[in-house]
Amino acid sequence: MSAYEQYVGEKNKIDAYIEQQYIITGVREGLSGDWLELKHPGGDETALLVETADARKYFANLLIKQSRKV
């Protein structure tokens, strides 16, 4: 799989949660990538391991947009 395809796969998963109105509640950076903590207004929580650089950049854009909405 090309790096781009891997990025698109990660981006789609993040987008799917955002479309379901999950918000980013935390980011834990580590050697394997960034764990993205997400929480639904209904209380459900999940975490995604984001490995590709482009996806880690992508969720940072989302995070800044999210902070501007609050």
């Binding site: 980013i24 509640t25 935390g26 834990r28 764990w35 940072a60 995070l63 999210q66 902070s67």
Partner: peptide, 8 residues
């Protein structure tokens, strides 16, 4: 931005 949202 990551610091602001916290480490979860």
């Amino acid at each position: 931005a990551i610091a602001a949202v916290g480490k979860g």
